[in-house]
Design a protein around this nucleic acid. Structure first.
Ligand SMILES: [Mn+2]
Ligand SMILES: [Mn+2]
Ligand SMILES: [Mn+2]
Ligand SMILES: [Mn+2]
Lengths: 217, 217
DNA sequence: ATTTAAATTTAGACAAACCTAAAAATAATT
DNA sequence: AATTATTTTTAGGTTTGTCTAAATTTAAAT
């Protein structure tokens, strides 16, 4: 159906699109795709010819409805494979991304529906991100950044914004994991760092950490 | 490491090489790869530059030791994925090939070693073909074509030569499956067809069938 | 309102993997 | 041994996705 590159672009546009209502800029897309702006322009034209995106010169790019559906299918596959790797093959959550990045492009409807069944229809991936169903529907959890909580507030860790291996390993080291209860004990005015209680542990975390942890109150 | 195309060529050369001691001809490779002879020449030169094959103009191509190792790694992945699809995702043996053809190119050592463990180190794929271990070693079973058996001889069905969905579905329909016991009751001189007893069933099969079933006596 | 800076697009190239058509080498027939 | 047929290679193109460098457009700053 679509090439590996086209699929990766659609996914990238999808992810960049949710941050704002404006079109996705060429440079932002180039940064995300680790390529040059001129390459992005070329590809965006091709996607536009295929009616996957709406594109006006110099005005950024938007996903069309069919582009959005395609992107969601790839994201569904990516996240299901991540669940498989963690649940069945003993990968840790910081090891799955690159492999899923390849697996998401395997073309077989049956493969994905059977995988979904095999995993017992998981709702979220190992990083707390929602897994769209076969039709592309998924629930957006109402979650708050830990950095937006006030002293005394408490909630459950339901996701991470930064999914880099570096951050995830930091969280592992400090026994910070999905599903755990976190309470803000104190916030330092000077640098915004927080003293948090997470289950039995108590530790101080910087804003770089608090701004990348999602809490459900 | 290697491109998808390079990997597929290496695999094709490996499979064609075992049929004879001579080099694999350009035309044979073109047929196997569903491409043109001129394209094969181009690719074979590239593989030769990379020391994956030994190639002399007009003399056919041979796998080098590193080419053979690479081919075996891909075959290992292909067959492990086939086992996964059949054992875990309820695919039938005639549905797995095309998907495995894609999955075999996913690049992750850990993925394959973990998959191997998850599947409990299977020795054969759903078609009875041996699965090389991580070092590329595999046992070649001493098997005979059903067509080479004489009346009265008996054995176990251990593999199929033709793995096309058409043939596999024919076998399913007639309850002919791996592991079953087959006895030759009679052979018709005129067309070579055989009357066989397979467990409770008795049926007559043509040479097209008997020449594609492997038996271990 | 100009000028300067930044973002974006165009122009022209390149590598990978394929193609067709023509040339060259090898194999098969007379 | 000479001729014909087959196989294989070369020459020259195409498409996809990338690149650099130059031109253009939009945004920011005087
Ligand atoms: Mn990808
Ligand atoms: Mn994820
Ligand atoms: Mn393949
Ligand atoms: Mn097989």
């Amino acid at each position: 159906m679509f090439s590996l590159s086209e699929e990766n672009y659609l996914k990238a546009i999808f992810h960049l699109q949710k941050h704002s209502t404006a079109g996705v800029s060429t440079n932002a897309l180039a940064e995300e795709m680790q390529t040059k702006a001129s390459s992005v322009t070329d590809m965006v034209k091709k996607l536009s010819d295929k009616k996957l995106v709406v594109y006006k010169k110099y005005q950024g790019v938007y996903l069309s409805e069919s582009g959005r559906k395609t992107a969601l299918k790839i994201i569904r596959k990516h996240r299901l494979w991540e669940v498989f790797l963690v649940e069945k093959l003993d990968f840790s959550w910081d090891e799955v991304h690159d492999v899923a990045e390849e697996l998401e492009h395997i073309k077989s409807e049956k493969l994905i529906s059977e995988l979904d069944k095999f995993l017992d229809y998981p709702k979220r991936d190992p990083h707390g991100d929602p897994i769209p169903d076969a039709k592309g529907n998924f629930q957006v959890a109402n979650k708050t950044l830990l950095s937006d909580l006030s002293t005394g507030e408490k909630g459950t860790l339901v996701g991470v914004k930064d999914t880099s291996p570096e951050f995830l390993k930091y969280l592992d080291k400090n026994k910070i994991a999905l599903g755990k209860t976190i309470e803000v004990l104190d916030q330092e005015k000077f640098d915004g760092s927080m003293l948090i209680q997470i289950e039995k542990n108590r530790l101080r975390v910087s804003t770089l950490v608090t701004a990348n942890i999602y809490i459900k109150i």
